[in-house]
Design a protein around this nucleic acid. Sequence first.
DNA 1: CTTCCATGTTAACGCTATGTTTACACAAAT
DNA 2: ATTTGTGTAAACATAGCGTTAACATGGAAG
Lengths: 227, 227
Amino acid sequence: MEGRPMRILIADDEPDILEIISYNLGKEGYEIHTAKDGNEAIELAKQINPDLIILDVMMPRKTGMEVCQILRTQPMFQKTLIIFLTALSDEASQIKGLEFGADDYVNKPISPKVLTSRVNALFRRLQTKVSEDSSLVLGNITIDPVKFMVTIDGADVVLAKKEFELLYLLAAKPGRVFLRNEILSQVWGNDVIVGDRTIDVHIRKIRQKMGVDCITTVKGVGYKFDV
Amino acid sequence: MEGRPMRILIADDEPDILEIISYNLGKEGYEIHTAKDGNEAIELAKQINPDLIILDVMMPRKTGMEVCQILRTQPMFQKTLIIFLTALSDEASQIKGLEFGADDYVNKPISPKVLTSRVNALFRRLQTKVSEDSSLVLGNITIDPVKFMVTIDGADVVLAKKEFELLYLLAAKPGRVFLRNEILSQVWGNDVIVGDRTIDVHIRKIRQKMGVDCITTVKGVGYKFDV
DNA sequence: CTTCCATGTTAACGCTATGTTTACACAAAT
DNA sequence: ATTTGTGTAAACATAGCGTTAACATGGAAG
């Protein structure tokens, strides 16, 4: 799945902050590098080519803003993610930071957990953009919502809209059991009322068209996608 | 060619907030739609297929979180940007929101300018390579947007303007399904209103003129170019 | 063993989304 | 002025999706 861990460069002049952030993001599996001023940040960035740079705004030897501005002019750092970190919580700074080309702007005092969540959110978005297709791959089965296509062992399977939506719902969380009510409200919507057998019939058609039996019935509860 | 404004759906139960945000984002050139509760947001989202959804967390008839959760399970909202808006500034909510699949989390009271900056930052990151008009080669089919010409097995096929634009749109991302709404806004523009059958008629003419059936209908969803 | 309930199975059918054809306004070309 | 072609609308035709209803099955409880 993940070829290499995402590389993060953190620049701040307060050692405590560096340590706290490093520790928390390291725990998430990221590869962490640190710099303690602006020039060092630029140097290191050129060396290691990080995926994300977290910049304190107030730093000696070039502020975060300056670092950002310098890096953004270089082709190599065009698509690098940048987060500003700052004690300045005033509106103007924040706007200025974002317009300088930052992807996020987090105020101090920092909650390590919040920062981690924001970092994760940025990377999540980047993933789906790079791979462009958010298709699910489960063993020999591929489900591509962009192409509206299901493939088993390279062979295409054509599903109708509702069938596809139902399959996608189950396959998005393999192994998890979905209650009939859950399925109804997610695929059909809340206000629609359909008969008891409707879900079953769709499940049947999916099973039939797919050939492989990848959907398991949990009697009295619901259905789940088998891994 | 690629000048379509980004489409934003804003959902909040306070009319004042809706208005302020709409005004400010509208000024930036975005196309704005609004909903005043959760269910309405889901309905509208399905209709207009927005690029970004701004969700108030506290709303009647489904909270923002619920809306997010429901939409994220559906294939067509995998890549849609989502921002949460909330008065709850506590850490836990924020983390929860981001882990729910949101791309940003903004606390009330909202500064319109800050929100605008954050919206801009998200879209900036999303900007795809503006494919300068280069000719597409797909198997034995060549589509040259400069010469306005389509060639199949060396034989020229003459298409009318709208037909060509439609074909080019689909062929630019082979396999990808384009919703009827998407096609309308990309080929016809957002403000133009045309009848229900217009797209079909054009598709038919393309199919007829091309001889080869390279466009597949995905009923209830849209059309796609076959590879 | 019987009963009961949840789900599987099948066929049939209405309805909606799309296909198809024709007509027409309008623009461009001749 | 005539011709030719494009884009849209309107009026059908139609396929197949989504649903229902009726019946089958199987397993758990008694």
